[in-house]
Simulated scan of single mutants.
Amino acid sequence: MSYDRYVAICQPLHYGTLLGSRACVHMAAAAWGTGFLYAVLHTANTFSIPLCQGNALDQFFCEIPQILKLSCPHYYLREVGLLVVSACLFFGCFVFIVLSYVQIFRAMLRIPSEQGRHKAFSTCLPHLAVVSLFISTSFFAYLKPPSISSPFLDLVVAVLYSVVPPAVNPLIY
């Protein structure tokens, strides 16, 4: 979405050629393919971890941090390694989004009319708000210290980053 906004605002005359049907198919295939691979890796790794502390979760859906609390200590590092790889992939996407929005905001500030700037900002801010909500709650869920962990807080944060962004996407796009 950030690339779409970048092309629409920074290179509007080239929108049709840069984001034609072929480019959209390639981007969708890349997103679906990496998402599928990511899901398969996590699922295979999660189901191969033996659980030493029972099999009852404190939530109504399966979250990786909750499963790690139940795993045997020496298998914990394998899942943490997968999370590090995931964090590297996430960081690459995050840098791409940030660079896109830096270019977008630079282009928006050069728009001479107030109405044009307002239209450009209103196009980008909802997407940026959802991305910020997803990133901040994901960081909090995976990087918070165990001392501030509670079942209710874990549930609220998990719902915020896994349910809210997909639910508001149709409203934004």
Rank of each mutant, 00 (worst) to 15 (best):
M1S: 14
Y6Q: 01
P12Y: 10
P12K: 02
S21T: 11
A23Y: 06
A23Q: 04
C24V: 14
V25Q: 06
M27Q: 12
A29T: 07
W32C: 13
G35C: 05
Y38Q: 03
L41S: 14
A44L: 15
A44Y: 14
S48C: 11
P50Q: 12
L51G: 05
C52V: 02
F60L: 04
I64D: 01
P65D: 02
Q66A: 09
I67N: 00
L68G: 01
P73E: 07
H74Y: 07
H74F: 15
Y75D: 12
Y76L: 07
R78N: 10
V80D: 12
G81P: 06
L82T: 04
L82S: 05
V85I: 14
V85E: 03
S86F: 07
F90A: 03
G92H: 13
V95D: 02
V102C: 10
V102D: 09
R106S: 07
A107D: 02
M108L: 12
L109F: 15
R110I: 04
E114N: 08
R117L: 03
S122N: 09
L125M: 14
H127S: 09
H127P: 01
A129K: 04
F134K: 03
I135L: 08
T137R: 00
F139V: 03
A141F: 15
A141T: 08
K144W: 07
S149F: 12
F152I: 09
D154S: 14
L155V: 03
V157A: 00
L160Q: 04
V164E: 00
P165F: 00
A167H: 02
A167R: 14
N169Q: 14
